[in-house]
Amino acid sequence: MIPSLELLTWYYRGNVMSSGIKTAKPPFSLEENNSGRGRGHPVPRQIKGWSWGAFLLNWVWAIGNQTWIGLLSLVPYVGIIFMIILGFKGREWAWRNRKWEDLEHFNRVQRLWSVWAVVVVTCTFLLSLIWILYLLI
């Protein structure tokens, strides 16, 4: 595996002495995978960000990523607000609630969720538009 640029920068700034003793704690590296360990463990900075998969496919995404709090999006009125919360916090919760092979695997899976979310919403919109046009004609 290729180490992250952040880890290499940390290493070459002189944070490792010639004897190999680390002088400061490095940023998240690919070697320390703390996914699936729950709340008490830090989430890597690369994980944080918006999740279109969690926002658009909220309850399906929640089941697929073992993020059971996402099922609150099924509750009327609360669901609309919770969709936005899932969009903002979903990636972090998915990292904490499920064991991932590594950071690349996590990003690849979340990217697929985002692609499928956009595909499903686009197809739904187009089918609705076709149905409305059919009713009008």
Rank of each mutant, 00 (worst) to 15 (best):
N34F: 09
V16D: 03
S4P: 05
L7D: 02
L133N: 08
I132F: 14
W59I: 15
P42E: 11
R37P: 03
V115M: 09
S114L: 04
K25S: 11
Q110A: 00
W61E: 03
W59L: 06
T9A: 11
G90I: 02
T122Y: 04
V16G: 01
R111P: 06
P26S: 04
C123W: 13
E32I: 13
W100K: 02
E32G: 02
K99G: 03
V120S: 02
L133Q: 07
H41E: 13
Y77H: 04
V16A: 00
L5F: 13
L8W: 03
P26I: 10
E6P: 01
V119L: 13
E104H: 10
G49V: 14
I84C: 08
E92Y: 08
W131G: 10
K48I: 12
A62N: 05
R111W: 12
G49I: 12
W61V: 04
E92R: 13
T67L: 12
P42D: 08
G49R: 07
V60H: 12
I63K: 08
T23S: 14
H105V: 01
R37Q: 12
P26E: 06
R111A: 15
I130C: 05
V78A: 08
A24S: 14
R37F: 11
I132E: 11
L30T: 12
W10I: 07
I80V: 08
L30D: 11
S19D: 15
N65I: 00
V120R: 00
R96I: 05
I21G: 07
R91M: 01
W95I: 00
R96H: 03
L30I: 11
Y134N: 10
R108T: 13
W61F: 05
V43G: 01
I69Y: 02
S73Q: 06
F88C: 08
I47T: 13
L56R: 12
H105D: 15
V115C: 07
I81C: 10
